[in-house]
Design a protein around this nucleic acid. Structure first.
Length: 589
RNA sequence: GGCUCCAUGGUCAAGCGGUGAAGACGUCGCCCUCUCAAGGCGGAAUCACGAGUUCGAUUCUCGUUGGGGCUACCA
């Protein structure tokens, strides 16, 4: 076989040589030890927690070593592409403050982000000529060959393999185009047939039932790589003649990954565990091109509990997998990052406890501390982390955050059902526009967001925007919906008396302790214990205790039995609103 | 089915041949307290199983079981 001739036959339009491209992508000039990493999502429009998990890993590795972190769009599968997906990816990552140094990041033009950086194009679909140049080279060296098998033929082959219990795939005797004479290829080409370009693998299938090799001989067909997260990995070599270029001339992931990560100077490939099993393919292609592979870092998959088994988070069933979920629920990006960091590096949490005020970037991130077993995503823990993150945010910052969130997600809130509606929907006509409400009440919001949040033991009950909305909904008539009834301990006939008496004694000028002393003495006057302890000791002496009385007032004012300090709430509400609430409760009672 | 990765409380996990097997979330109890939250103190709860190596295995090896992934002209 004249491979030189075959290469020209297959790729007549390719005039560049590998050397041309290698010259166009010179080695990066970086400090010693600097790592080059990348995030390479495919534009399916669905960006998820796993992407963010990988993004943080790559980002840390690069920026901690004065390296480069770039964004490459893996759009080699036009069937899966979704309109506007790249913008969605970029916007989502920007929301979570993932900082890229280069890649498909510039302003949008014709639906594509322009390149930032010298190692582009950063869309794989724009790199066809590059891939084909190296493909041509492989053909020239006899390391790749055209395959004219149709989809039907391949499907039939698969069925036969299944029936014969042979290992599936294009290999060994099944690789029917591997050694075809030139005439056959010319004939197909002359007939206008399209081909896929396959890799001529030199590996052999040691797992085949009819493999006659001894154990030692089999061992020589294994290879070892050191994974940045998992350490030494020993795997059987690849024996499949995988597709390098599809019929349309666009590469498969395998080929594109090898070419791009080599040319772009990637030193560490951070990707999901699902790639582990195709690692032998990649290692072989790197070797066929005469290149050193990068360090692979295969991250664990994110799981969730389903019934009593763990399973991978699925984009169909689990809304919490989508980054959009956290954004629309109103989780602060810092909280999501902080949580992800705790599951990313097992020692982050302890570091954070020891350094509560330190900038997260001063944490020393290492791949060795990454877990290689499936991690269950824990919403509870996220919420807990979020409380600690939010308690450190000044009220002004929280207010700005809520305002931004509401502008995007809170334009039509129905307090009765607590649902967020589509603002365009006519049924949502009387929904509350939280954005307008927040904007019109800046001073009040700032006071609300300051309740008890300073000092030695600040309240930590703010978690995410939707939860915060519920948390202070009673401050505004627009969102006020009474939730709780008066406490059972207080006889119904006492309630009007308590409320009327309270109304008569309520002076907004009273400070917190004067105010409460009044409540206490009034409670005692009505036959309730002034100290809960006294009531517990001698329940027969009292109707109840001051806590029951104040709960009546609390329910009247806030519609709830539980709330932060009532005096503070009343100060923020102002006298007219407090009076109106109590009168309203009296009218209803 | 084949190949492969993983395995410490309910969850995230430290551990890297000898430990009372950390810590965090959750949970339970107590304290503080006008309610809630926060905070303090304390409790329950873990090395999947079976062989082997070793004076000694959570730790090393093999097997079993369980779970995950891959097995496309998808990434």
């Amino acid at each position: 076989m004249n491979y030189e001739k075959l290469a020209e036959l297959l790729f007549p339009h390719i005039t560049k040589t590998p050397a041309d491209w290698i010259a166009a992508f010179p080695p990066r000039v970086l400090p010693e030890g600097a790592k080059v990493t990348r995030l390479a999502p495919s534009p399916t429009g669905f960006i998820h927690l796993g992407n963010l998990y990988g993004a943080f890993t790559g980002e840390r590795l690069a920026h901690q070593s004065e390296g480069v972190f770039f964004l490459r769009i893996e759009d080699t599968d036009n069937k899966r592409e979704v309109e506007g997906a790249v913008e969605a990816v970029i916007s989502s990552l920007a929301y979570f403050n993932v900082r890229f140094d280069e890649g498909a990041l510039g302003e949008m033009k014709n639906g594509k982000a322009t390149d930032v950086g010298a190692y582009g194009p950063y869309y794989q679909s724009d790199r066809a000529e590059i891939y084909q140049t190296f493909a041509k080279q492989l053909v020239r060296e006899g390391k790749a060959y055209p395959c004219f098998a149709s989809e039907e033929e391949l499907a039939a082959m698969r069925e036969t393999q299944e029936a014969e219990k042979a290992n599936p795939g294009y290999h060994g005797k099944w690789a029917v185009w591997r050694n075809r004479p030139m005439e056959d290829i010319e004939a197909e080409l002359a007939a206008g047939k399209k081909f896929t370009l396959r890799f001529r693998s030199e590996g052999i299938d040691i797992s085949a039932a009819d493999c006659k090799l001894t154990e030692e001989e089999k061992a020589s067909h294994m290879f070892t790589v050191t994974d940045g997260i998992r350490g030494r990995l020993t795997m059987p070599e690849n024996y499949q003649d995988v597709v390098l270029l599809k019929q349309n001339g666009i590469p498969t992931y395998h080929f594109a990954h090898v070419i791009d990560d080599h040319l772009m100077g990637t030193t560490h490939v951070v990707r999901g565990e699902e790639w582990l099993s195709s690692l032998p393919i990649h290692v072989q292609i790197f070797s066929a091109l005469g290149w050193e592979p990068p360090v692979f870092c295969h991250t664990t998959v994110l799981m969730k509990m389903d019934g009593d088994t763990k399973r991978k988070l699925s984009k169909r069933k689990d809304p919490e997998l989508s980054l959009n979920y956290y954004r629309s629920e109103g989780y602060h990006p810092d909280a999501v990052r902080e949580y992800l960091l705790t599951i990313l590096n097992s020692n982050f949490e302890e570091w954070r406890i020891a350094n509560p005020d330190a900038d997260w970037e001063s944490f020393r991130f290492t791949t060795e501390k990454m877990s290689s077993s499936g991690t269950l995503f824990d919403l509870n823990k996220l919420n807990d982390v979020s409380k600690d993150v939010l308690v450190r945010k000044p009220a002004e910052e929280l207010y700005a955050f809520l305002l931004d969130w509401a502008e995007r997600y809170g334009r039509a809130y129905d307090p009765k059902t607590r649902m967020y509606c589509d603002p365009e929907d006519p049924a949502a006509a009387d929904a509350v526009d939280l954005y307008e409400l927040f904007r019109a009440n800046e001073a009040k919001m700032l006071r609300i967001l300051s309740i008890d949040r300073t000092g030695e033991k600040p309240r930590k009950d703010l978690v995410y925007a939707k939860q915060i909305v519920e948390y202070f909904s009673y401050f505004f008539d627009e969102t006020f919906v009474p939730e709780d009834t008066f406490p059972e301990e207080v006889p119904a006939e006492d309630i009007p008396e308590i409320l009327e008496g309270y109304l008569a004694r309520y002076y907004p000028e009273d400070d917190n302790s004067v105010w409460f002393d009044k409540v206490r003495s009034y409670a005692e006057h009505l036959g309730y214990a002034g100290k809960p302890k006294d009531f517990k000791k001698n329940p027969e002496l009292y109707k109840g205790h001051v806590g029951h009385v104040s709960t009546v007032i609390r329910v009247a004012v806030t519609g709830r039995r539980n709330s932060p300090d009532l005096w503070t709430i009343q100060q923020i509400m102002g006298e007219p609103l407090v009076q109106a609430r109590i009168k309203r409760a009296l009218g209803g009672a």
